[in-house]
């Protein structure tokens, strides 16, 4: 489940960075700073996902749990910010 989630998140963020963000930026140039922040968060989350995928192959549950908690913190913050900034413009 953990690896499936990592792959799913990676694909989702790749779609946003490659399709959604450029198209929104074209229609709403004022979003430039927001998109830059979201892209930086995508890069940070990609690093966390990579670290988690490496940890899953090691036997220590404690370190995996810490990595999952860190991912939850970062991702929750990222999703909240993205919804707050983009959804009013998509609706």
């Amino acid at each position: 489940n953990c690896l499936t989630l990592c792959r799913g998140l990676h694909i989702h963020h790749t779609f946003e960075s490659g399709g959604l963000f450029p198209s929104m930026l074209e229609r709403h140039p004022e979003l430039a700073a927001t998109i830059t922040t979201l892209e930086a968060e995508h890069a940070k989350i990609a690093g966390l996902l990579e670290a988690l995928q490496t940890l899953v192959s090691t036997p220590s549950t404690t370190s995996v749990l810490a990595a999952v908690d860190e991912l939850i913190t970062e991702l929750t913050q990222h999703l909240d910010y993205e919804e707050e900034q983009l959804i009013p413009l998509l609706d």
Binding site: N1, C2, L5, L65, V68, I72, L75, L79, E82, D91
Partner: peptide, 28 residues
């Protein structure tokens, strides 16, 4: 309209899945 709702749905699914993964890791 529907695109915003779709994004929220996708995000909701990731939030739920991640909480599930956390429970699985914590109980393993």
């Amino acid at each position: 309209g529907s695109f915003g709702a779709a994004l929220r749905l996708i995000h909701g699914a990731f939030r739920r899945e991640l909480a599930l993964v956390r429970r699985e890791v914590a109980s393993s």
